[in-house]
Lab assay of single mutants.
Amino acid sequence: EPLWIRPDAPSRCTWQLGRPASESPHHHTAPAKSPKILPDILKKIGDTPMVRINKIGKKFGLKCELLAKCEFFNAGGSVKDRISLRMIEDAERDGTLKPGDTIIEPTSGNTGIGLALAAAVRGYRCIIVMPEKMSSEKVDVLRALGAEIVRTPTNARFDSPESHVGVAWRLKNEIPNSHILDQYRNASNPLAHYDTTADEILQQCDGKLDMLVASVGTGGTITGIARKLKEKCPGCRIIGVDPEGSILAEPEELNQTEQTTYEVEGIGYDFIPTVLDRTVVDKWFKSNDEEAFTFARMLIAQEGLLCGGSAGSTVAVAVKAAQELQEGQRCVVILPDSVRNYMTKFLSDRWMLQKGFLKEEDLTEKKPWWWHLRVQELGLSAPLTVLPTITCGHTIEILREKGFDQAPVVDEAGVILGMVTLGNMLSSLLAGKVQPSDQVGKVIYKQFKQIRLTDTLGRLSHILEMDHFALVVHEQIQYHSTGKSSQRQMVFGVVTAIDLLNFVAAQERDQK
C-alpha cells in the first residue's frame, strides 16, 4: 500500500453525458421521505430548503428570480454533511469501515464536522487534520463531537509532509485500522450531490432553472449537481466560483495573481482535486475576500440567511453572472454553511477592521482624538531585521541585547519573508524542534498583521487588541530589464502597544 495517494490523481470516472444510468458502476440512493420521529440526527441530513432572495437581486438590477439552496440546514450545519454520511455509508457497505475503526480526514473543517457527527452516532474514533487558518468555532464544535484535532501550517503546499493532507496520511500509516475516506478522491463525494442535492433542486424548481452558481473546494458539490442538471435540464448554465489565490478556475489566465492566501474558508485549493470535473462548468468567476464577507453580511442583514463567507462569494458572483438572465428565468445559488463557524471572524466588526474589510468610518461609535491620525505620526525608528541564514542562537542574543521581542526576517534585497519572535524561538528550542545552530528560517511564521503608514491609529489599535505587534510595510514598484514591473513589500518598522501608548501619553502631556 502506498504511503500516500495524491489528492489530485487523474480521475478514473467514466461518467458521460447521455450515458444510461443503468451502466453506472456505483451504488445510487434515492431521496427517502422522513418519518415524523427521526431514529437519529443523521436522518436530518439532506432535504434542505430552497429560499427566495428578495432584496439583493433587485438591489443589483437582476431581472431573474434568485433562489438560495440553504445547505446550513443540514444536521452539522453545512453541505459537507451529505458527503460525510455518504462516504461512511459506502465504506461500511463495501466492508472497508468496521466497528471500532478510526476515521482520519484532512479538511478545512466542515467535512470534519460532518464526519465527527456521523462518527459520534456510529461509534468510530475520528481524527481531523486541518490548517491553522480555520476558525476556532470549527475546532470547538469538533472537540465537542469527540474528534481529535491536529493543526497544520496554512501556507504548507498540499504535497508537503507538513500539509493537512501529508499529516493525515502519516497518521494513517501509524494508526492500525485507520482510514482516510479522502473527500478529494472519493466518488461518494460527487455521488452524494448527484443522487440527492441535484434531485432536490430539480424537484423544488419543478425542473425549471436557467443558471446554477456554486463555490468550489473539493469540487464534489458542483460536479455532482452539474452532471445531473446537464442530464435533466441541459439549458442550465453552470457557474463556478473560485477565490483569488486558488488555481481551480479555467482558463488558467484567471488564476494569475501574486496573491497566495485568502481568508474565506472551505473553497479554493492549490491543486485540482480528483473529484472535480471542470468540463461540466460553463464559466468560472474569481471572487475576493472583501466581496465575500460584504455579501455574507448582506445576506444575514437583508435576507435573514445566517450563512458563512463562501455563501457571500457565491452570491457576489451570482449578481454578476445572472445579469444575462431575463424576467421569468431563474438562478439558484448554493449557500454551503452557517455563520456559526465564523462568529469571531467576519461577523465581528473588530475582525473586519483588522483585516481591512471594514473602515473605521463605517462604525458610528465615538472615537478618541488620536483615532484618525496616521501611523506615520508615530515617528517610528528604523527596524531591526535579520536574514533567514542567521542562526536561532545568534538571533536570540541580538533580540535580548537590543531589547526586542520580535524581528522581521528579510532577504538580501529587503523583501519581507516573515517574522521571528523570542517566545516562538525559545519554545521551539525547548520542544526540540530546532537547535541553536539551525537557521532562523526554520522558525519563520507568517501569521502576523501588516499595516501601512497611511493607515489610521484606530486601525492599529484594533490590531493591537488581539496581537502583540504589527509590521509596518510599504510597497515598492521595481522595474526589470524586460520592461515588466513587480510590486514588493518592504519593512518600514515594527509597532507595539507600548509605542502607541507612549505616543498618546506624550501628545497629551505636551497639550497640557
Score class of each variant (00 low, 15 high):
residue 383 P to Y: 08
residue 325 L to F: 13
residue 420 V to S: 15
residue 414 G to V: 13
residue 436 P to V: 15
residue 475 E to G: 12
residue 501 L to M: 13
residue 355 K to Q: 09
residue 453 L to H: 03
residue 242 D to H: 01
residue 405 D to P: 11
residue 499 D to K: 06
residue 253 E to N: 13
residue 334 I to S: 03
residue 262 Y to Q: 05
residue 439 Q to W: 14
residue 457 L to N: 04
residue 363 L to V: 10
residue 291 E to C: 15
residue 490 M to K: 11
residue 365 E to F: 10
residue 308 G to Y: 00
residue 437 S to E: 15
residue 332 V to F: 02
residue 386 V to P: 07
residue 481 S to V: 12
residue 307 C to D: 02
residue 361 E to V: 12
residue 245 G to Y: 00
residue 301 A to H: 09
residue 472 V to F: 10
residue 435 Q to C: 14
residue 300 I to Y: 05
residue 438 D to E: 15
residue 282 D to R: 14
residue 345 K to I: 02
residue 310 S to R: 01
residue 428 S to T: 14
residue 320 K to H: 04
residue 242 D to F: 02
residue 325 L to C: 04
residue 430 L to S: 14
residue 433 K to E: 12
residue 461 S to W: 09
residue 392 C to D: 10
residue 446 K to M: 13
residue 360 E to Q: 14
residue 326 Q to T: 11
residue 247 I to H: 07
residue 270 D to L: 01
residue 293 F to K: 01
residue 240 G to E: 08
residue 370 W to S: 04
residue 386 V to S: 09
residue 412 E to W: 09
residue 254 L to G: 02
residue 345 K to T: 06
residue 372 H to C: 15
residue 397 E to K: 14
residue 466 M to E: 10
residue 394 H to I: 12
residue 432 G to Y: 04
residue 482 T to C: 11
residue 498 I to V: 14
residue 314 T to E: 03
residue 343 M to E: 04
residue 377 E to R: 06
residue 417 L to W: 09
residue 497 A to F: 04
residue 253 E to D: 14
residue 387 L to I: 15
residue 325 L to S: 02
residue 438 D to R: 13
residue 382 A to L: 14
residue 312 G to T: 01
residue 330 R to W: 03
residue 401 E to G: 13
residue 485 S to C: 14
residue 470 A to V: 15
residue 294 T to Q: 12
residue 496 T to Y: 02
residue 280 V to F: 06
residue 356 G to R: 06
residue 443 V to D: 10
residue 248 L to C: 01
residue 275 V to R: 00
residue 249 A to G: 08
residue 420 V to T: 14
residue 464 L to A: 08
residue 338 S to Y: 06
residue 241 V to L: 04
residue 296 A to T: 07
residue 318 A to E: 03
residue 389 T to M: 15
residue 441 G to P: 05
residue 357 F to M: 01
residue 405 D to V: 04
residue 433 K to W: 03
residue 389 T to K: 14
residue 334 I to P: 00
residue 509 R to A: 12
residue 257 T to S: 14
residue 333 V to A: 14
residue 505 A to N: 09
residue 276 L to R: 03
residue 273 P to G: 00
residue 430 L to A: 14
residue 457 L to M: 15
residue 406 Q to S: 02
residue 440 V to S: 15
residue 443 V to A: 13
residue 256 Q to H: 12
residue 351 W to R: 01
residue 239 I to E: 04
residue 268 G to I: 02
residue 372 H to M: 08
residue 430 L to M: 10
residue 485 S to N: 09
residue 257 T to D: 10
residue 450 Q to N: 12
residue 413 A to M: 15
residue 339 V to F: 06
residue 346 F to T: 02
residue 375 V to K: 08
residue 360 E to I: 14
residue 267 I to F: 02
residue 414 G to C: 13
residue 471 L to E: 06
residue 367 K to Q: 12
residue 443 V to T: 14
residue 281 V to E: 05
residue 283 K to G: 05
residue 327 E to Q: 11
residue 423 G to V: 04
residue 429 L to Y: 07
residue 276 L to A: 02
residue 318 A to G: 14
residue 239 I to N: 01
residue 329 Q to P: 05
residue 266 G to N: 02
residue 438 D to I: 13
residue 347 L to K: 05
residue 494 V to W: 02
residue 244 E to M: 05
residue 286 K to T: 02
residue 296 A to I: 01
residue 262 Y to K: 09
residue 422 L to N: 09
residue 272 I to D: 05
residue 464 L to C: 10
residue 315 V to F: 09
residue 434 V to T: 12
residue 465 E to Y: 09
residue 403 G to Q: 10
residue 363 L to T: 12
residue 469 F to R: 05
residue 354 Q to P: 05
residue 402 K to M: 15
residue 406 Q to W: 02
residue 457 L to F: 12
residue 436 P to M: 10
residue 432 G to I: 14
residue 383 P to K: 08
residue 302 Q to V: 08
residue 355 K to F: 13
residue 442 K to V: 14
residue 427 S to N: 09
residue 345 K to F: 00
residue 324 E to W: 08
residue 455 D to Y: 10
residue 255 N to L: 02
residue 421 T to Q: 15
residue 480 H to S: 11
residue 498 I to G: 15
residue 380 L to V: 15
residue 469 F to P: 11
residue 274 T to S: 07
residue 356 G to M: 05
residue 410 V to D: 10
residue 472 V to T: 13
residue 416 I to N: 07
residue 371 W to N: 09
residue 312 G to Y: 01
residue 467 D to E: 15
residue 333 V to K: 01
residue 434 V to W: 04
residue 369 W to Q: 05
residue 364 T to P: 10
residue 479 Y to C: 14
residue 321 A to D: 11
residue 391 T to C: 10
residue 347 L to W: 02
residue 496 T to N: 12
residue 352 M to N: 00
residue 507 Q to M: 15
residue 294 T to L: 06
residue 252 E to A: 15
residue 318 A to T: 14
residue 412 E to I: 15
residue 512 K to Y: 03
residue 339 V to N: 05
residue 468 H to Y: 08
residue 300 I to P: 00
residue 317 V to K: 08
residue 298 M to A: 11
residue 298 M to E: 11
residue 307 C to P: 06
residue 280 V to R: 11
residue 372 H to G: 13
